[in-house]
Design a protein around this nucleic acid. Structure first.
Lengths: 244, 244
DNA sequence: GTCAGGACACTCTGAATAGAATATCCTGAC
DNA sequence: GTCAGGATATTCTATTCAGAGTGTCCTGAC
C-alpha cells in the first residue's frame, strides 16, 4: 500500500460525504462548505481532485456515471465501496483513539522566544492575547447561533473543542505576559542580559559548550547549562517515550 | 518573492541556530536535537537541506567555507546575513502576535464523529483519554527533570504550553465520555437512531434538503435541520469572520 | 441585447515534502 | 584482524498539495 495512506484528512471528509450518498467532487466540496467543515478540514480544489483520484486508485471509491449537462465540464459521480466504508471506520476510530503528535505554530514561537528582545516579545504577546479574545468571542457567537437554530451539540463538538483550546491558550498567554512584565518568570535575567540592548548579534556559546557530557558544571554557570540540562531532559523523555 | 516564504518552521529553526553561530546543516540538526527542539519543530533531513537551499536563494543565509575532513562528504558551513536577522525577528514576532488557523487531527475526528457507531466512538474515546493521561505524565516528568537540572522555565515554555493544551483536551474528552455514556449529550438520540444497528448505509437526505433557504422548518424535523442550522451557523460565522 | 460578474466544475503547475538511499568513517566485539 | 552497526553528512525521488488558471453557464442591470 502506498505510503500516502491516511495523510490528508480531506480524504476522510470525502469518504464521509460519499458514505451519505454518491456525489461528484465539486458537490462534495459544496456539502462540506454548507456544514462549515472547512473550519476543521483544509479544503481546496487542487487537493480535492488529487485526493479523489488517490481514493479511487486505492479502491475506496468507484466512479459511476459521468454526466454532462449542457456544455459544462463533465461531472464524474463517485460512490463509496465496501472497503471504503471499512477504511472510513478504521481511520476515524484511529483518529479518535490515538492522539497524534502535532506541531502548533505557537509552540515553535515559544520554543525560540528568547531570540526576540524582551520588550518586542511582550508587545507581540499582548497582540496575541487580544486576537485570541476576539476569536473566542466570534466562536462563542457562532456556537450560540447554532444552538438557537436548533443544531444539536453533537454537531458542534469541533467548535466546543476549539473553544476549550483557545481558553487554555489565552490563560497561558495571560500568565506569561504577567510574568514577563513583572519579571517573575524564572530565567528572565538571562534573557534580559542577552537581548536587552538591541537585537545585536548573540554572543557565541563558549567553545565546546554543547559537548558537555555528564561533567558537573559550576553553580550559576552562564549558558552551557541550557544545553546540558536540555540534553538530560530529552534523554529522560526518550526513555518514557519508547512506545509512540 | 516565492510563495514559499515562511511556510516551513524548520527554516526559522535554522535561522535561529545560525544566529547563534555559523554551522553546517547537519550540525544545525544536532544542535536542535540536543535541545529537544524536534518536539516543537518537525525535523528531517530531506526537508533540512531543501530549506537551507531556499534560505540561501532568498539571501537570508550565506555559504561560507566548505570543509572536507578525511574523505567524508563535504560540509558547507552557512552563516546568517543581516536580512536573515531581520527575517528571523519579523517572522518570530508574527508567529507570536498572530494566532494562525490550525487543523488539529482531533478536531477532524470530532467533526465526523457521528459517522461512527456510538459504542465504537465511546471505546475509542476511552483509549484516547488513557493515552492522554500517559502523555501528560511523561511530559510532566520531563519538565520536572529539566527543573532539577537547573534549566530555567524560560527555556521550557513549549513544554508548559503543551501541558496546558493536553489538560484542556483531557477535560474535554472526559466530559464527552461521560455525556455519551449517560446519554446526556444533546442530540444523541439522533446519533443512535442512525448508526445503532450496524454501519449500514446512511439514509439519504430528503431531496433538496441542503438548499433550504430561510424557510422555517417544522419543529422536530428529522435530519434536514442539521444541514439548515449548520448553514445558518456558517453564515453567522462568516459575518463575524470577515477580517482574518 | 449585451455585458459584467459570479457560480460551476474542473485542470495545471511548480514548489515542498518525507522517507529512503548513499557513501564514508569510527568503535568495539569476537 | 575483521566485521557489524552506528554516527556523519548529504542526495535522491516519488508524491502531495496549494494556488492560480480555464472555460462554460446563468443572472440581472442598463
Amino acid at each position: 500500500m502506498p505510503r500516502s495512506a491516511r495523510s490528508n484528512p480531506l480524504a476522510l471528509a470525502v469518504l464521509v460525504s460519499l458514505y451519505e450518498r454518491p456525489m461528484h467532487p465539486y458537490e462534495v466540496a459544496q456539502t462540506l462548505r454548507s456544514r462549515a467543515k472547512q473550519e476543521s478540514v483544509r479544503l481546496n480544489y487542487g487537493s480535492l481532485y488529487a485526493v479523489v483520484d488517490s481514493l479511487e486508485k486505492r479502491g475506496f471509491i468507484r466512479a459511476g456515471e459521468t454526466v454532462r449537462e449542457g456544455r459544462r465540464p463533465e461531472r464524474t459521480v463517485y460512490e463509496i465501496t465496501d472497503e471504503g466504508v471499512r477504511e472510513l471506520t478504521d481511520w476515524l476510530t484511529e483518529l479518535v483513539a490515538v492522539p497524534a503528535k502535532e506541531y502548533p505554530h505557537f509552540m515553535v514561537a515559544l520554543s525560540f522566544l528568547p531570540a526576540l528582545a524582551t520588550d518586542d516579545a511582550l508587545e507581540a504577546m499582548r497582540s496575541r492575547a487580544l486576537a485570541l479574545e476576539i476569536r473566542l468571542t466570534q466562536l462563542r457567537a457562532a456556537l450560540r447561533a447554532g444552538d438557537e437554530y436548533g443544531l444539536p451539540r453533537l454537531f458542534e463538538l469541533e467548535g466546543e473543542y476549539e473553544e476549550k483550546l483557545l481558553e487554555a491558550e489565552l490563560d497561558f498567554v495571560r500568565v506569561l505576559i504577567k510574568e514577563i512584565d513583572d519579571g517573575s518568570l524564572d530565567g528572565i535575567e538571562h534573557w534580559r542580559s542577552f537581548y536587552a540592548p538591541a537585537s545585536a548579534a548573540m554572543p557565541a556559546l563558549p567553545e565546546g559548550a554543547d559537548m558537555v557530557d555528564g561533567v558537573a558544571l559550576p553553580e550559576e554557570a552562564e549558558l552551557p547549562e541550557e544545553a546540558a540540562a536540555a540534553e538530560k531532559a530529552a534523554a529522560a523523555e526518550e526513555v518514557a517515550d519508547s512506545d509512540r
